[in-house]
Design a protein around this nucleic acid. Structure first.
Lengths: 339, 339
DNA sequence: GTGAAAGCGCTAACAC
DNA sequence: GTGTTAGCGCTTTCAC
């Protein structure tokens, strides 16, 4: 076992000072060619690599980005991480991932844990608990300490910082409009509880699309559920009793649940019931019929967020920091077989 | 903006030495009650938290775990991360996630990036490129430097370290046996290229199950594909021309592809064709018919791996380090509607 | 009861 | 051309 070698050890080996070694390895012209070559050769042979921790302490920057997400076993969020990771790695940053598990408390703990010097900045999406509580002191605090934060997808106006969101409103609008164009008259909405920012926006898009299509908004056609909780009865009620001829669901999972229910009841998709979901993930591709969806472009969101964050981190003079940016990533309607 | 406060600043404020402050905050009996309280109150008020980087440098341990995975937008791997993260957080560790993107080179770069002091140990699953190349020098090197590594799922005998795997052999065996019990005679296998360790093991389980069921192994019923690459023609050929009455697929995606193909051709699942997949993810639940699968228990694997790693990290005296462990997580057959 | 000093690994301004 | 020194933030041993 050959432990990592340090400057000190190299300096001892040649009876020179540590700084000489440091300079030699940096190819400084201050050091004689001979000494330089000698030291460089030795360092290479022993696979010398500067210690990141020491560099972090010295430079007061870690080159680490903290990511806090509600969960990760989820197509959208894991694509976001993929996007962040790709851009960050390219720029020489590492990503530290924490999962809030939709809990406010975990989110706070995670932030505090990372804010003590482990990272240079945050990229995060609010947990359900935080959205419900509307308590953002932990985020404001790190921002106050001068640590940049980029909020993505589930954001809030209460915090002043960079944000990357998708146009939930338009995503929903275009999906519902598309259904209306197909001649659907009773378009049901399966959405999340109201405290979720994205749920609200999609709801508005839904309403506006109905309005523009000359269809009436019927609250009876709106169903609110918690994600990943299959409530066939509720879906069945909306679709059968209320005679829906189309479903716009704000998650892939809801959409597929609706399709399964329909199939179980002998309702044909898309002939008798059109279905469109949100989030263009694996489920959409592999379901049958394959699902028409509003694609959220998670990787692009991740990449944009990482870009905004790193730009801020690398901009040394605080004076000319840009004001908080808000980037909106366009959704696209991916047409498949369910509508 | 109130920057984070340091010991030095606190010490200045009260005209005491840094070490006095340090001790006071640690409630050391060396310091007078009065001074202690005073300093503690001030520190609390200013929300003092020791700087992690400084601690890392001092203690020569970062309390960070490096995770390197082939990808992350993938049910199995994201569950693994979830499991690792949960256990690690509980033990006061953070996880740094890197994605190798199935590439050998990226895997090497990621490892080198993290091995320079950023982390205390690794948890990783081999990239496809690495399995193909059979080159593990980068892993051996960090192990030689005294940094513990835990290999999960896609592992190799070439490296001596802790490993956590699933019983691929038995998972495949039980799935195929189950199909045989149902009276299926021509059970097709859709698997990955041979250089993947897990593919080989599942293949063996398949063969053994056939043998024990008194069925003959027919190479014509075996199809090798790259994951996430839909090759309907090939699947169709195996199922229709070769008259398969069941399919055992080594990924969820393959299984669903087979079902979709069948449905397109009017072959009824499970009546005319039984299908079983591997990986018990979202796809399996939401496909229709829902998929019978061999569950891999990703979170458990992650948790076990984190446990092994942290145990090794916290065991100070090298002398009594255990020999490399190999843990096998049992798979379970989750019966749903496709078989 | 308090403080000085060394050290973790590295850099950089400044001597010589 | 090479070395000394200070410093990043913290802990800990040893003096006073």
């Amino acid at each position: 076992m050959k432990k990592k070698i340090t400057l000190k050890e190299i300096s001892k080996r040649f009876n020179v000072s540590i700084s000489t070694v440091s300079k030699a390895l940096k190819d400084s012209p201050e050091i004689s060619e001979k000494t330089r070559k000698m030291i460089q050769a030795f360092a290479k042979e022993h696979n010398y690599k500067p210690n990141n921790i020491a560099l972090s302490l010295k430079n007061q920057k870690t080159k680490n980005i903290g990511i806090i997400l509600p969960e990760i076993v989820h197509y959208f969020f894991s694509s976001v991480i993929t996007g962040i990771e790709r851009y960050a790695t390219e720029k020489g940053y590492n990503v530290i991932v924490c999962i809030s598990n939709e809990s406010f408390d975990k989110e706070v703990i995670n932030m505090e844990m990372l804010a003590n010097g482990s990272i240079d900045g945050f990229i995060m999406s609010l947990s359900r608990g935080t959205e419900r509580k509307q308590d953002f002191h932990h985020i404001k605090e790190v921002i106050n300490q001068g640590m940049p934060v980029v909020l993505i997808d589930r954001v809030t106006d209460e915090v002043e910082c960079d944000k990357v969101i998708i146009d939930d409103f338009h995503g929903a609008y275009s999906a519902v409009s598309y259904l209306a164009e197909q001649g659907r008259k009773r378009i049901a909405l399966i959405t999340m509880p109201d405290y979720m920012s994205v749920g609200r926006l999609r709801m508005e898009g839904y309403k506006k699309a109905l309005e523009d299509a000359g269809l009436e908004y019927d609250p009876e056609l709106v169903l609110r559920m918690e994600d990943f909780y299959e409530n066939f009865e509720a879906i069945e009620k909306v679709i059968k009793e209320r005679k829906a001829d189309a479903v716009f669901a704000v998650t892939e999972f809801f959409a597929v649940s609706a399709m399964k229910m329909a199939q179980k009841e002998g309702i044909k998709v898309p002939e008798e019931l059109s279905v469109i979901g949100f989030t263009d993930g694996i489920i959409s591709i592999s379901s049958s019929p394959s699902l028409t969806t509003v694609s959220q472009h998670g990787e692009e969101i991740g990449e944009k967020a990482a870009h905004l964050l790193i730009e801020r981190l690398e901009n040394e003079n605080m004076a000319e920091q840009k004001p908080p940016q808000k980037e909106v990533v366009k959704t696209t309607l991916v047409k498949r077989d369910s509508a």
